[in-house]
Design a protein around this nucleic acid. Structure first.
Length: 480
RNA sequence: GGCGCCAUAGCCAAGUGGUUAAGGCAGGGGUCUGCAAAACCUCCAUCCCCGGUUCGACUCCGGGUGGCGCCUCCA
């Protein structure tokens, strides 16, 4: 069973064969840094984080590049709005991006290039495209001549005539472009805008060219995986493909991977619809691993509907996994047990089968749920026999190993459980001191064998959403 | 108008040309418990509609209906 990857360019799952055996070069379009990230960004970068982790786990030597676009119209507009320098704005949102991604357990890419650090490279690429007869200069602008590229629109599967018809409905009266669909490789800068010297005068890169340039710089003219959100298929990736081909004469990407959208209430998330959530909005209310888990419950290419109940359920699952892992840790601390290699390998095979099918995290999570249940089942067996110990050790190791690939179950267990509870206490508007007091009250009644009074307190806690649990180690409580 | 995606139990969500259609949540029944809870056991679907291909389709093809996305900045 080999890895199969859905390729947007071919519109079906293809067997994955990297350019160089054992080596994967992948590029994912990063953020344009003019605002904080929303949960759609979270989805994209969690998805490709898992892909990257899985490829490494599978034995590939991975080079992962994810850029920062730190110069563009929106950035300039936002900086002007705020009256601050562009670099102050972009530095700030790069830091915010890292903060959010670190919280979600998204690993840093191997290389995270910034556009403004690569202007000379970009100028070179534009020059090469023009020299090769695929670009033209108009004033201080440079445009890509789409009619020079026969395969234009092959990636997105569109027809030029339809595109032109659609575009003509929008206002674009005065243009120097030779064809309405031609796009800018280099833009002459207006006064006050960031500008760099170029053979065409002071200007800045067009959108798209930075990814063509930086991907080839770090990964070569041809590389394996290029990822991003589905919205980037057109125009961004279509244009990148045209540029890279024009510069190198080669088809630059072997597998195009695009993640689906996050919807809210069944509709696309948009600021205008007031259904817009930033990552920070969500992390104020939920443990970050809850969001990560939630995002992995649906296959990365399908739309996912963000709901309160969905993320609450995810958080409960995160708690369950950590509680299970804690219980296993406690047990394994008392015995000397090693995982059973055969059984561990069969669990790996099941995990591999799920993930090899276009990185099916939803199926993988199903398997993980089976393992966690089996682990609890094993823990419930009496005694400390070798059979039980081996089983617990095996399942525990399997859960942690799969978790490592999915980016789950890797945090400090006690701290994570406590944090999940703290979020729930806050969401329900409870006070843990009050709860502690009631639990003590109940235990005093129990000690006096006044079960009627004890149960009354218990019911009161239940109404608050607090469940008491009497264990051999004493009474615990948990917000459900 | 063009292109594309989706439609699986009360809800979320995998999956397969023919053996028992994952998993989770909720719900029913148990074990355990002073009572509970947690945990575990157990029960709970024939896959939107109509045609076609096939020995056989939920899975393939065509049509329909419904939902969504892209075609403009967008993960």
């Amino acid at each position: 069973m080999a890895l199969r990857v859905y390729n947007t360019a071919t519109r079906h799952k293809d067997d994955f064969e990297p350019l160089e055996p054992g080596k994967v070069r992948m590029y994912v379009c990063g953020v344009t840094v003019y605002d904080v990230c929303h949960i759609g960004h979270a989805r994209a970068y969690v998805a490709f984080d898992v892909i990257q982790r899985y490829l490494r786990w599978s034995g590939y030597d991975v080079t992962y590049v994810r850029n920062f676009t730190d110069v563009d119209d929106k950035i300039i507009a936002r900086a002007n709005e705020k009256g601050i320098p562009v670099t102050e704005l972009t530095d700030r949102f790069i830091a915010e991006f890292h903060e959010d991604m670190d919280a979600l357990g998204v690993q840093r890419a191997d290389i995270e290039p910034r556009v403004t650090d690569h202007i000379p490279d970009i100028v070179e690429t534009v020059k090469r495209i023009v020299e090769n007869g695929h670009g033209y200069v108009e004033g201080g602008d440079v445009y890509y001549d789409i009619t020079s590229y026969p395969a234009y629109l092959a990636l997105s599967g569109r027809k030029l005539d339809d595109m032109v018809a659609g575009a003509s409905e929008r206002v674009e009266a005065e243009t120097v472009k030779h064809h309405p669909m031609d796009f800018a490789l280099w833009k002459a800068s207006k006064p006050g805008e960031p500008a760099w010297d170029s053979p065409w005068g002071p200007g800045r890169p067009g959108w798209h060219i930075e990814c063509s340039t930086m991907s080839s710089k770090y990964l070569g003219d041809v590389f394996d995986i290029h990822g991003g959100g589905q919205d980037l298929i057109f125009p961004h990736h279509e244009n990148e493909r045209a540029q890279s081909w024009a510069a190198s004469g080669k088809e630059f990407v072997r597998y195009w991977c695009h993640n689906g959208f996050v919807n809210v209430s069944g509709e696309k998330m948009a600021k205008s619809l007031k259904n817009f959530f930033t990552i920070k909005d969500v992390l104020k209310q939920f443990h970050p691993e809850s969001l990560r888990y939630f995002l992995l419950t649906t296959h990365y290419r399908s739309p996912i509907n963000f709901t309160q109940s969905g993320i609450e359920e995810a958080e409960n699952r995160v708690e369950y996994l950590y509680e299970t892992a804690c219980a296993a840790r406690t047990f394994l601390g008392k015995v000397n047990a090693q995982p059973a290699p055969d059984e561990l390998e069969s669990i790996r095979a099941r995990f591999r089968k799920a993930m090899d099918d276009d990185f099916n995290t939803a199926a993988a999570l199903g398997g993980l749920a089976d393992d966690a249940r089996s682990l609890n089942e094993a823990l419930a067996l009496k005694g400390k026999g070798p059979e039980k110990s081996a089983r617990v050790a095996t399942l525990n190791a399997a859960i942690l190993e799969q978790g490592k690939v999915l980016g789950l179950c890797q945090r400090d267990m006690d701290e994570t459980r406590a944090t999940c509870q703290a979020f729930k206490v806050r969401r329900k508007g409870l006070d843990s001191k009050v709860i502690d007091g009631l639990v003590i009250q109940r235990n005093e009644a129990r000690a006096a064998r006044d079960f009627a009074a004890a149960d009354a307190v218990r019911d009161r806690l239940m109404k608050m959403g607090v469940q008491v649990m009497d264990t051999p180690e004493g009474t615990r409580w948990k917000v459900i």
